[in-house]
Design a protein around this nucleic acid. Structure first.
Length: 1032
RNA sequence: GGUCCUGUAACUCAGUUGGUAGAGUGCCACCCUUACAAGGUGGAAGUCACAGGUUCGAGCCCUGUCGGGACCACCA
C-alpha cells in the first residue's frame, strides 16, 4: 500500500481518487482496523465497578467449521451480525462479537481421512488413533486461519483476540465439566438402544442428522406359514377365515396344504431378524390369527407370534407387518411393548452377520436377492410392487442409515426441553420472526433423547472411565445372581483374561445398569492416575454437544470469570433456521441448565441464500454464486474454469457449463464487500429467502459509486469551508440549530429529511429490519441528497455561474453538505463499513480535537432528534419539486431539447405559494432549464393559444412555445383526465353513500371531501386544456 | 398426516392500526447539463392468484379453493 495515507493526520487527504475502487479501500481499512485494535472489548467496562458501566451487547458468532470455505451463509451472517454489532459499538455500548471455530467432528475427520487415503493410501486405522488425531491438528493449523481471513475480508468486526476453537484446552475443560455434571445429575445415561447407524461414517448419529428422501423401492409380499394348529377346530377356523380373505393365502407346498399370513416389506433382508408378525387389533381379516405362531422359513427352530398392535396400518400392504426390532425404529418400540427378542442380522458395514445363518457375509443387496429367490423356491413369494417411499439418509455421508441396536450415550432431553420451551413462552427469549415459535414448540414437545456418542476419533473423547476393579466385582455379582455362587472357573477366567478383553465381553453382555456400576465420569484423566485400573471410553461426543455450551463456555465457564459476569446472556443469536434444532435448541437447553438463565434475549433467524429465481444454489446446477467472486469479480471464463474443477460427472459437465454461461453471461463484476453486504442486507426481508442476483448486486454497487461521487462533488466546497474556518474561528462550530435557522429552504429541507432518515434507520436496525435499513439509506442518499439537494446546492453555490465570488449563503450550504454527508457516512457505516470509513475521513469535522474519534467505526451513531424535523420546509420543498418536475415533463412532451431555454409561467393556487415560488426563481429555472419564469395566480393571466399547460393540484406549469400543442401532449392530457375522472367517480360514490358519511370517522370523511374537491378542480383544468386542442 | 411461509408491474420485492397501490431492476424516448454514462430527465406498465364473507370501505381481517416453497412425523 505505497499510496495509502494514514488517517491519523489531522488534515484529511485533499484529493479523493476519481474512481471508487472497492478492493483498494477494503484491504486498507481492514488492516487499519485490526492494527488499531478497535474491536477488542473488556469485561471490566461493563461490570458495576466501572463508572459508569457500559451496557454490554453480545453477539455470538456461529462458529464456522474449520474445514469450511466461505459460502453465502457466512457472508449473510457476517453482513447482518456486523450491522448489529457496529451499530451498538457506535452507540457507545460495550459491543462484543465473539468469534469461534468449530472442530466439526464428522466433517473434518472425513476430509482428513480422504486426504490420507489419497496422499498415503492409508486408512485412519493404519496410522492409529493418536497419530491420526495429530494429522487432524496439523491440518487445522494449516487451514484454520483461512476462513477467519475471509470473514475479516467481508468486514467482520469481531473481537478476534477472543477467537475460540472448540477443541482448545479451555473448551475441552468445559465439555468435560458439563458432561460430568449432567452424568451426575442423571441426565446422561448409557443405553442399549436402536440408533441411526451411518454406514458411511461408521458412527451413530442423532435423529436430527437423518434426512428422509423419497426413493423408488420394491415392496415384496411373502407368506409366513402358520405353525400347525394345535387342535383341529382352530385349524378349521383359521382355514375358514383364510377363505374369506385373499390376503391370507393358501399355498401348496410339497403336497401339503398349510395356511399362512402375508406380509410386505421393502427391506427383505431384515426378515432374517424377524421376531413377530403384527396386525391391527380391529382387523377382521386377522382376528383369528392373533395368538397363533408362524414358522420362519429359514430357521427351523424359530417360530414367531402373531401379535396385535394399534401402530399397524390396516390399509398398507397386506395389513400384516413383519417385526424386526433390531433394525427398525417402529419395530423396536413394538418389540419393547410386547417383550420381543431383538435379533441383529447386520454388522456395522451393513453386511449380513452370523445371525443371518446361511446368508452370513453377503451384502445387504446380495442377501435381498438371494432371499427373494429362496422364498420363490419355497413357494412363499407372492408379488412385488414398485413404490416410492422415504429412505433415511445420513446428512453427513449421504449414505443410507441402518437402524441398529447399540450401546450409546444419551441426554435425557425431556426436562431440558421443557425449560427451553418455557423460556420462549414466557418471553425470556424471543424468536424472530415469530412464526418459528410453533416449530420450536413442536420440536421440543416431541423431542427424543439425544444420542451424543459418536464412534469417531476427532472430537471430545467422552470423560467416562471404566474401573476394571469394579468391573470384576460386577462380573462376580452377575455370576452370583445367575448361579447363586461364584465358581472357581469364573475366578480362573478373571485371572487369565486380559482386562481389555474382559471389558469387551462385559460391554457386550451386561445390561445398562451393570455397566454403569463400573463407569466413572471424571473431569480428570483417571488413566494418568492409575493406568492399570482405568480405561477411558473410546467414543467421542457429538459436535453439537460442545457447540451447545458455546454461549457460556466461550466466556470462560466453568470458571467464574468477569467475562461470564459481564457478557452472559448475549443480546441476540443470529443464525439460519436450518440449525434451530441442532444448535439453538441445544444452547437454550444447556444454557438454562448450567447458567440458570437463557443464553440470549433474541433469536433472529435469517433465511437461506438462493439464486435469482429462488432455486437452491448448487455447484452442479451452475447457479452457485461464490461470495468471494462477488467481492472480487470473476469473468465467465474463470467461472467455467472453476466449475470444471468440481466433481461433476463428465456426461453432465457441458450442460452445467451452459448453465453457468446462461446465469452469468458477463461473469460477475467486482462489487466489493460493501456492495455484497448492502445487497444481502436489503435482500434479507424477514421470513423470505434471500435471492441473490448479479443485476441486483450491480445496482447496489452503483449506489456506492453514487455516494463516492457525491462526496467528490462536495469536497472542494468543504475544503473552502475549512480555509474560511481557519481564518475566522467563530464559524468553526456552527450548530445544527444554527444551520437550520440560517439555511435556505433546501438546506432546511435536507436537514429535516436527514432527521427522518436517522429515525427510520435506528428503528429498522432495532427491529432487525435490515431490508428497511438499507432501503431507507439508499433512497435518502440517491433520491433526496443526490437528486435534489446536490442539484440545489449547485445553484446556491453558483457552481455554474460566471461569478467569481460565491454568495455569502454558500458558506451555510457547504456546511450543510458536509453535515449531511458526514452523518450519512456514520449512518450507513454498519452496512457498508469500508467505503464510509474511507469517505468519512474526508468529510468529518476538521476540528482537530484529540477527543474526536479518528475512525468512523468508533464515531457516534446518529440518534434521532425529532425537534429537527421541519414540516413547513418539507411541504414547501414539495411544491418546488412539483413545479420543476412539471416543467421538465411538459418540455419533454413538447419535444423541446434541453439546450433550448424557454420562458415559463407557473400558475398557482394561493398567494403564499406564489410568493414561495417567486422566491426560488433562480433555483427552479436552473433545475428545470428554463429561460425565465413568472409566477401568477390561477385565472389572472391570459395565455397564448400556443402555450403548453401541465396542471397539478397546487401548481400548473405553462411553457410558452411558438408552435401549437403536440398531439402527444393531447394524448397525455386525455390520459390524465381519464385517470382523474375515474378516481373522482370512486370518491364521489363513497361520499354519496350515506352509510359512509355517517359510519366512517370524521377525519376520513373530511379527507375524502378535500380529495374530491381537488380532483374536481384538477379535472376541470384538464378539460380546459383539452378544449384548447378542440379549438385549434 | 401435521405445521409454517408464500402468491402485488415483465422480474425481484415493499406495503404501518383496513381509507382504491410503491421501490429497484428491466422496457421506451431524449440527453455525455464540469460529482457520477456504474450517470441525468421524462414515460409506459398492476382485475393485488381465485371464490365467498365481515365492513360504509379489503392488497391488508375471516373461510374455502388452486398454485409455489420449506420443515416435522410416517410409509413396513
Amino acid at each position: 500500500m505505497p499510496n495509502s495515507k494514514p488517517p491519523q493526520s489531522k488534515q484529511p487527504p485533499a484529493e479523493l481518487p476519481k474512481a471508487y475502487d472497492a478492493a483498494r479501500i477494503e484491504q486498507r481499512w481492514q488492516q487499519r482496523w485490526l492494527q488499531a485494535d478497535l474491536f477488542a472489548v473488556r469485561a471490566a467496562d461493563s461490570l458495576p465497578a466501572s463508572k459508569p458501566p457500559k451496557a454490554p451487547y453480545v453477539v455470538l458468532m456461529p462458529p464456522p467449521n474449520v474445514t469450511g470455505t466461505l459460502h453465502n451463509g457466512h457472508a449473510l451472517f457476517v453482513a447482518l451480525q456486523d450491522i448489529l454489532v457496529r451499530t451498538q459499538r457506535m452507540r457507545g455500548n460495550n459491543a462484543l462479537w465473539l468469534p469461534g471455530l468449530d472442530h466439526a467432528g464428522i466433517a473434518t475427520q472425513t476430509v482428513v481421512e480422504r486426504q490420507l487415503q489419497i496422499q498415503e493410501g492409508k486408512t485412519r486405522h493404519d496410522v492409529g488413533r493418536k497419530a491420526f488425531i495429530g494429522k487432524v491438528w496439523q491440518w487445522k493449523e494449516r487451514n484454520g486461519d483461512r476462513i477467519v481471513q475471509q470473514l475479516q475480508a467481508i468486514g467482520a468486526s469481531a473481537d478476534w483476540s477472543r477467537l475460540r476453537f472448540s477443541m482448545d484446552p479451555h473448551h475441552c475443560e468445559a465439555v468435560e465439566h458439563a458432561f460430568v455434571q449432567l452424568w451426575n445429575d442423571g441426565l446422561i445415561y448409557r443405553g442399549q438402544r436402536l440408533v441411526n447407524w451411518d454406514v458411511g461414517s461408521q458412527t451413530a448419529i442423532s435423529d436430527e442428522e437423518v434426512q428422509h428422501v423419497p426413493r423408488k423401492g420394491q415392496l415384496v409380499y411373502f407368506t409366513y406359514r402358520l405353525v400347525c394348529a394345535p387342535s383341529a377346530t382352530a385349524a378349521a377356523d383359521a382355514q375358514h377365515a383364510a377363505k374369506d380373505d385373499p390376503s391370507s393365502q393358501q399355498h401348496r407346498v410339497e403336497g401339503q396344504v398349510s395356511e399362512g399370513i402375508v406380509v410386505a416389506t421393502t427391506r427383505l433382508e431384515t426378515m432374517l431378524g424377524d421376531t413377530a408378525i403384527a396386525v391391527h387389533p380391529h382387523d377382521e381379516r386377522y382376528k383369528q390369527l392373533v395368538g397363533q405362531r408362524v414358522q420362519h422359513p429359514f430357521f427351523a427352530d424359530r417360530t414367531l407370534p402373531i401379535i396385535a398392535d394399534e401402530a399397524v396400518k390396516q390399509d398398507f400392504g397386506s395389513g400384516a407387518v413383519k417385526i424386526t426390532p433390531a433394525h427398525d425404529p417402529a419395530d423396536f418400540a413394538m418389540g419393547q411393548r410386547h417383550g420381543l427378542e431383538s435379533i441383529c442380522v447386520l454388522d456395522r458395514h451393513s453386511r449380513m452377520n452370523a445371525a443371518a445363518g446361511p446368508y452370513k457375509g453377503l451384502s445387504k443387496q446380495q442377501a435381498r436377492e438371494r432371499i427373494e429367490q429362496d422364498l420363490a423356491d419355497l413357494g412363499l413369494l407372492c408379488k412385488k410392487e414398485s413404490i416410492e417411499h422415504n429412505v433415511s439418509v445420513s446428512q453427513r455421508s449421504g449414505e443410507v442409515i441402518e437402524p441398529m441396536i447399540s450401546r450409546q450415550y444419551f441426554v435425557k432431553a425431556g426436562p431440558l426441553a421443557r425449560q427451553a420451551k418455557q423460556a420462549v413462552d414466557s418471553g425470556d427469549t424471543q424468536i424472530i420472526p415469530g412464526s418459528w415459535k410453533k416449530t420450536w414448540d413442536h420440536f421440543l414437545d416431541n423431542i427424543q433423547d439425544w444420542c451424543i456418542s459418536r464412534q469417531l476419533w476427532w472430537g471430545h473423547r467422552i470423560p467416562v472411565y471404566y474401573d476394571l476393579q469394579a468391573l470384576e466385582q460386577a462380573i462376580r455379582n452377575d455370576a452370583k445372581q445367575r448361579q447363586g455362587q461364584n465358581t472357581p472357573a469364573l475366578e480362573a477366567l478373571l485371572a487369565h483374561t486380559a482386562s481389555h478383553e474382559l471389558l469387551r465381553i462385559a460391554l457386550d453382555t451386561l445390561d445398562d445398569a451393570q455397566v454403569r456400576s463400573f463407569c466413572v465420569a471424571s473431569t480428570t484423566d483417571l488413566t494418568q492416575q492409575d493406568p492399570k485400573r482405568y480405561v477411558q471410553e473410546e467414543d467421542v461426543l457429538d459436535t453439537w454437544f460442545s457447540s451447545g455450551l458455546w454461549p457460556f463456555a466461550a466466556l470462560g465457564w466453568p470458571q467464574k470469570t468477569d467475562d461470564l459476569a459481564a457478557f452472559y446472556p448475549s443480546a441476540v443469536l443470529e443464525t439460519g433456521f436450518d440449525i434451530l434444532f441442532f444448535w439453538v435448541a441445544r444452547m437454550m437447553m444447556l444454557g438454562i441448565h448450567f447458567m440458570g438463565r437463557v443464553p440470549f434475549r433474541h433469536v433472529y433467524l435469517h433465511a437461506m441464500v438462493r439464486d435469482a429465481h429462488g432455486k437452491k444454489m448448487s455447484k452442479s446446477l451452475g447457479n452457485a454464486i461464490d461470495p468471494l467472486d462477488v467481492m472480487q469479480g470473476c469473468s465467465l471464463q474463470q467461472l467455467q474454469d472453476k466449475t470444471r474443477q468440481h466433481p461433476i460427472p463428465p456426461s453432465r459437465l457441458d450442460s452445467v457449463l451452459a448453465g453457468v454461461a446462461k446465469n452469468f453471461p458477463d461473469g460477475i463484476p467486482a462489487v466489493g464487500a460493501d456492495g455484497l453486504r448492502l445487497s444481502l442486507a436489503i435482500l434479507s426481508g424477514q421470513g423470505r429467502d434471500v435471492r441473490l442476483s448479479v443485476p441486483r448486486v450491480v445496482g447496489y454497487r452503483s449506489f456506492l459509486n453514487k455516494l463516492w461521487n457525491a462526496t467528490r462533488f462536495a469536497l472542494p466546497h468543504i475544503h473552502a469551508l475549512a480555509q474560511t474556518n481557519a481564518s475566522t474561528a467563530s464559524a468553526a462550530s456552527t450548530s445544527l440549530a444554527q444551520l437550520q435557522q440560517r439555511g435556505s429552504l433546501c438546506d432546511r429541507w435536507i436537514l429535516s429529511r436527514l432527521q427522518r432518515t436517522i429515525a427510520a434507520v435506528n428503528q429498522a436496525v432495532d427491529t432487525y429490519r435490515f431490508d428497511e435499513m438499507g432501503q431507507t439509506l439508499y433512497h435518502f442518499v440517491w433520491s433526496q441528497l443526490c437528486d435534489w439537494y446536490v442539484e440545489c446546492a449547485k445553484v446556491q453555490l453558483r457552481v455554474n455561474s460566471q461569478d467569481k465570488q460565491p454568495p455569502a449563503s454558500a458558506h451555510v450550504t457547504a456546511q450543510v453538505l458536509q453535515h449531511v454527508l458526514e452523518v450519512s457516512m456514520r449512518l450507513l457505516h454498519p452496512v457498508c463499513p469500508f467505503v464510509t470509513e474511507e469517505l468519512w475521513a474526508y468529510v468529518r469535522p476538521n476540528t482537530a480535537q484529540p477527543s474526536q474519534p479518528l475512525f468512523c467505526c468508533t464515531a457516534d451513531y446518529p440518534q434521532p432528534d425529532t425537534s429537527c424535523i421541519d414540516e413547513q420546509a418539507e411541504t414547501d420543498m414539495q411544491l418546488l419539486q412539483q413545479a420543476v418536475t412539471l416543467i421538465r415533463a411538459t418540455r419533454q412532451e413538447s419535444g423541446v431539447p434541453v439546450s433550448q431555454k424557454l420562458p415559463v409561467i407557473l400558475l398557482t393556487d394561493t398567494a403564499n405559494n406564489q410568493q414561495l415560488l417567486q422566491n426560488h426563481t433562480a433555483l427552479i429555472t436552473q433545475l428545470a432549464h428554463a429561460q425565465t419564469m413568472q409566477v401568477q395566480l390561477r385565472g389572472q393571466c391570459p395565455l397564448p393559444a400556443t402555450a403548453h399547460t401541465n396542471p397539478s393540484p397546487h401548481v400548473d406549469a405553462v411553457l410558452l412555445l411558438t408552435e401549437a400543442n403536440s398531439q402527444r401532449q393531447q394524448q397525455r392530457l386525455q390520459q390524465q383526465f381519464n385517470k382523474v375522472s375515474k378516481e373522482l367517480a370512486a370518491v364521489q360514490t363513497a361520499l354519496d353513500n350515506p352509510r359512509f358519511v355517517s359510519g366512517a370517522p370524521a377525519n376520513v370523511v373530511q379527507a375524502k371531501r378535500q380529495q374530491c374537491q381537488q380532483l374536481q378542480s384538477q379535472a376541470d383544468k384538464l378539460q380546459n386544456c383539452l378544449r384548447q386542442f378542440d379549438a385549434s
